[in-house]
Nucleic acid binder design. Structure first.
Lengths: 109, 109
DNA sequence: CAATTTAATCGTATTATTGCAATAATAGAA
DNA sequence: TTCTATTATTGCAATAATACGATTAAATTG
């Protein structure tokens, strides 16, 4: 049905999936890398840095904002975007915890 | 257009997005957690453990296999699934590297 | 105010994803 | 071989995601 079932899954599983989905597009990965690399908060130069049209990037920014990974501050005509460091570390910890789940040492198949 | 553009992005960005997409569903997160938790390789009990129909889970397993996070070994009528530990650690390192990107200390907006 | 600049939203087209019922495929058991 | 058990595949239907042109909104400038 195109819609993911939510009943029967834990809040953590849903949260992990939600975060992963936010990262599940090269443009959004690129945006985050760009914002992390540039020392200052950068506005619409993101559009110049990516091979996508402005409305499309605006959409991707919106999705990243929705999961809290970035913030946008209106500054006159421009908008300064930056990574939300607090949330960034929160997500890092969540994903780190997931991947640190003890995986059996010997491959079993 | 429903299809992500791939030109203009780095191989690493595409790979990260591909991995994230594999994790972008609670059922797939749950499957990985289940396989990580259960000490032995478990076959179709996954179907009993999740609130989804068998064909749907088969589909999710296929996607996890496609990114290499799990392996399936046919054993008679059953299939033993388990996490591919090598790939698991590879993905862990990739995501870890991504999130360890130095993010500016002071929030800028 | 009019013009400009920048970002967001709308409208639309196209493709992808999700889910399940039905069916097929495969291997072992009777 | 026939039956059973288990997993994969197919065939829909519904919804989500992606992309971009056109437009709108908001603030600044002249």
């Amino acid at each position: 049905m195109g819609t993911s079932k939510t009943e029967g899954f834990t809040a953590q599983q849903l949260e992990l999936a939600r975060i992963a989905r936010a990262l599940a597009h090269p443009a959004r990965v690129a945006i985050l890398q760009y914002l992390a690399r540039v020392n200052a908060c950068i506005g619409g130069e993101i559009v110049d840095a990516l091979p996508l049209a402005q409305p499309t990037i605006s959409r991707h920014l919106k999705e990243l904002k929705a999961v809290g990974l970035i913030k946008g501050q209106i500054e006159g005509v421009r908008v300064n975007y930056c990574i939300d460091r607090e949330r960034w570390e929160e997500v890092q910890a969540l994903l780190g915890g997931f991947f640190n789940t003890s995986v059996n040492e010997q491959d079993c198949c």
